Amino acid sequence: MAGNSALALDHVGLCARDPAPLWAAWEGLGFALSPVARQSGRRGPDGPVEPFGSGNRCAFLRHGYVELLGILDPALFANGVDRFTARHEGMHILAFGMEEVEGNLARLRRGGLDIPGIAWLERPVEPGGPIARFARLPFPDAPEGRIQLIRHMTPDLVWDPRWMGHRNGAEALEGAILAVGDPAATTARLSRLTGLPARPDPVAGFRIALPGAAGAAGPHSPAMETWLRVLPAGALDGVLPGVVPPTLPFMAGLVLRTGDGAAAARRLLAHLPLRDAPGGGVMVPPGHAGGAAVVFR
């Protein structure tokens, strides 16, 4: 992997003030979640490492993962979770995998972005376990949520086979869908951050394709294209049926590739009000997935 641009959709993140119901909902969707991990990090590039009040569990896939984030100690710095959940509970994080941290930082600064430096984050992979470390380049003040480039410094610690066998057959994070008031403005920001061009979406708005590379979103991830769709609010129902934005901008949903054409997901989740997803697959409505639509295909 090389180059000063994003390579793949690394992960998306859902936020809840109380994470326990969110974690339970995703376990009910057939995911094997990682243990609870408390976060810590530096608030600024030169600040000390300090414990945060936020913590997560994750659904790790062969390619990418889904982070389920909440507040474990409201007395400590919440790492933005309080700000996100004040808008609504649901998806607020988009992270794109990169290889060249310093090269991408230089590219973004040349483009006029006020990025103070590399933001470091760390957390134990499980209570008392080894520490996973991450280098991040967050897009400053993005109204859509936390949008960032990320490089995993310890990927083999994060993608542990113990947490990657999902009863629903999910294997890869394939894409994410946003509904926004001004698709052109949002897409321009995302294209600037990723260093990748945007093209018209076949429904409406725009689409950014990330080229992929072996190991771009997990130590054993295949080379596969991932994507981001940025749609006007009026087009969302044609992509995620019945989903209504609670506010704009809105990270509306994610698409997971399965190994069986979503057959296991359809059987396992037949008790839920599933919807057929345009373009193939089956959709779990946001109300049953922590505030974001989840498409299995």
Rank of each mutant, 00 (worst) to 15 (best):
Val255Arg: 15
Ala235Val: 04
Val255Thr: 14
Gly234Pro: 02
Gly234Thr: 05
Arg266Met: 04
Gly242Thr: 07
Leu248Ile: 10
Phe250Glu: 06
Leu231Val: 09
Arg257Thr: 15
Leu248Phe: 06
Gly238Arg: 15
Gly242Gln: 12
Gly238Ala: 15
Ala262Ile: 12
Val243Arg: 12
Gly253Trp: 01
Arg266His: 09
Val239Leu: 12
Leu256Thr: 14
Leu256Trp: 14
Gly242Met: 12
Leu231His: 05
Ala252His: 03
Ala252Lys: 06
Ala235Leu: 07
Leu268Cys: 02
Pro246Ala: 00
Asp237Ser: 14
Pro245Phe: 01
Asp237Glu: 15
Arg267Leu: 02
Asp237Tyr: 13
Ala265Phe: 09
Leu240Gln: 15
Gly259Trp: 03
Pro246Ile: 01
Ala262Trp: 13
Val239Pro: 06
Ala262Thr: 11
Ala270Ser: 15
Phe250Cys: 10
Leu268Asp: 00
Leu268Gly: 01
Pro232Phe: 12
Val244Tyr: 00
Thr247Gln: 13
Pro232Arg: 12
Leu269Asn: 02
Leu269Arg: 08
Ala252Glu: 02
Leu248Asn: 07
Thr247Cys: 13
Asp237Val: 10
Arg266Asp: 11
Met251Gly: 13
Asp260Ile: 03
Pro246Val: 00
Leu240His: 10
Thr258His: 02
Arg267Ala: 10
Pro241His: 01
Ala270Val: 05
Arg267Glu: 10
Gly234Cys: 03
Pro249Asp: 07
Ala263Asp: 14
Leu268Thr: 04
Thr258Ser: 02
Leu248Lys: 06
Asp260Ser: 04
Leu231Thr: 09
Leu269Gly: 12
Thr258Glu: 06
Ala264Ser: 15
Gly253Cys: 07
Leu256Asn: 14
Thr258Met: 02
Gly253Tyr: 01
Ala233His: 06
Gly253Ala: 09
Arg257Asp: 10
Gly259Gln: 03
Asp260Leu: 08
Ala265Glu: 08
Leu268Ser: 01
Pro245Ser: 04
Val255Phe: 03
Pro241Trp: 11
Val244Ser: 05
Thr258Cys: 06
Pro245Lys: 01
Gly259Glu: 02
Leu254Lys: 10
Val255Ala: 13
Ala265Met: 02
Pro245Cys: 01
Leu256Asp: 12
Ala262Pro: 12
Ala265Cys: 08
Thr247Lys: 07
Pro245Gly: 09
Leu268Trp: 03
Ala270Arg: 15
Arg266Leu: 10
Val244Ile: 14
Leu236Trp: 06
Ala252Trp: 02
Ala265Thr: 09
Gly253Asn: 05
Val243Cys: 08
Val239Ala: 08
Val243Gly: 03
Val239Gly: 12
Ala233Thr: 02
Leu231Glu: 11
Ala265Gly: 05
Pro241Glu: 10
Asp260Gly: 07
Val244Trp: 00
Ala264Asp: 13
Ala264Cys: 07
Gly234Asn: 03
Val244Leu: 08
Ala265Ser: 03
Arg266Ala: 13
Leu256Glu: 12
Gly234Ser: 11
Ala233Lys: 04
Gly253Met: 03
Ala270Trp: 09
Leu269Pro: 05
